[in-house]
Design a protein around this nucleic acid. Structure first.
Lengths: 217, 217
DNA sequence: TGTACATCAGTGAACGCGCGTTCACTGATGTAC
DNA sequence: TGTACATCAGTGAACGCGCGTTCACTGATGTAC
């Protein structure tokens, strides 16, 4: 199988790497126009292929979006895992995880939107963010939530006395998600005297953790 | 002008209260299907009117959604203001504001989605949540963010020594928003040992505030 | 009270569009001999 | 190395659909006299 080397590389009848190219195109359009604004026709056109070609690789539109979301969960978990295993003190690594989360949401809005955009009211969908670890090519990949819990345990080895570490992990995640989405929507107040989102998350997380270390009040 | 008393009340050529009815219908469909899934045709059908009738009252689809969002900001500010002026200690009222926020997001998902769904990449849109106070029928209505800042000042009169109260207000808002949206997307982990969203917010907010009262670390 | 009339909130038909999806097909690719 | 063939990733035309929006119109309403 030949390798796909760029849009101008298309020579013959076969694309060579259509599936990946479509995922990339979908990710890009979701980033630009949101989940609702993304269309199969645009993705196919960008990649230089007939819309029908898509059905060789995906069951339909929904499946393509789901695949983007899946890749997103994978990528986010990878980034958080990398931050967790980076150099420095435990606190530094923990802080780095927060930065990595916000950076991911900012740099990969297509992924983020696919992962977290509210689904039309179905039954309770469980989230790959915290669901049981997903197998990825044979080796068990940790989910993002587990990385977060682990980071909390590493960073504050004295432990949480009266509080489940998962409790704090949810708080930290919710704060991160709130900051990321408000920022993406352009709704975070900005101005002199107001911190940027990274400072916002750092200070907030410290407060949440220290509040918990003293026990629930 | 006759009054609209229900869907079966439609007698003649004129509806009587079409604008309000359309807003209500839009709000309902946005709640059920999300911003992207909402259509003018459905809203008109629900109300018992031709889609074209809509254009007597709105410039188009976008204007209707914007009106829903506007009503949402108004309603949210009202609820927060009510909680702020309720009975009990300052701390109790502050806690009640948090509950009111989560309850609003849960009970009025149509409003909430219209208010906070990420707009397609335009320029920086300013948020009615914290923008300068909106006039409402002549009397200046406080915006939701100002209520939040005021509540913080009321609840912790000893004041924030080294930290701008707006800083903490943003933190509290982001946490509230994160919890509300994760819950709406069905992504909040639930289970034995894990708190419900109200407890989550209450504990988180206390930690954020107390962390700030001691000064930035 | 009755009538003429201006207003304007509705109708209904039509539009152009672009969507997701299907289908029979075609032609490039890689393999068996 | 050359040839026949099976595979299957693409094509391109077509589909039914429902969308947002427009337009000339109609008929109910409220008012002036």
């Amino acid at each position: 199988m030949r390798h796909w080397r760029g849009p101008s590389d298309r020579q013959g009848y076969h694309h060579g790497n259509l599936k990946e190219a479509l995922i990339e195109a979908a990710q890009r359009f979701i980033a630009e126009r949101g989940i609702g604004g993304f269309t199969l026709a645009d993705a196919a056109k960008l990649v230089g292929v007939t819309p029908a070609a898509l059905y060789r690789h995906f069951r339909g539109r929904e499946a393509l979006v789901a695949e983007v979301a899946f890749r997103g969960y994978d990528e986010l978990a990878k980034r958080l895992g990398r931050a967790l295993q980076s150099e420095g003190t435990a606190l530094e690594r923990f802080t780095r995880m927060g930065e990595a989360y916000l950076a991911f949401a900012e740099q990969e809005p297509g992924f983020y939107a696919a992962m977290f955009s509210a689904k039309p009211a179905e039954s309770e969908s469980c989230s790959p963010f915290w669901a049981k670890a997903v197998e990825s090519g044979g080796k068990p990949a940790g989910n993002a939530f587990d990385f977060l819990v682990k980071a909390l345990a590493d960073t504050f080895p004295e432990g949480f006395q009266t509080v489940d570490a998962r409790f704090i992990a949810v708080e930290v995640w919710a704060l991160s998600h709130g900051i990321a989405t408000l920022d993406a929507a352009g709704q975070l107040p900005k101005g002199p005297g107001l911190p940027d989102k990274y400072e916002l998350l750092r200070a907030g997380v410290l407060a949440l953790v220290h509040g918990a270390l003293k026990g629930k009040s």
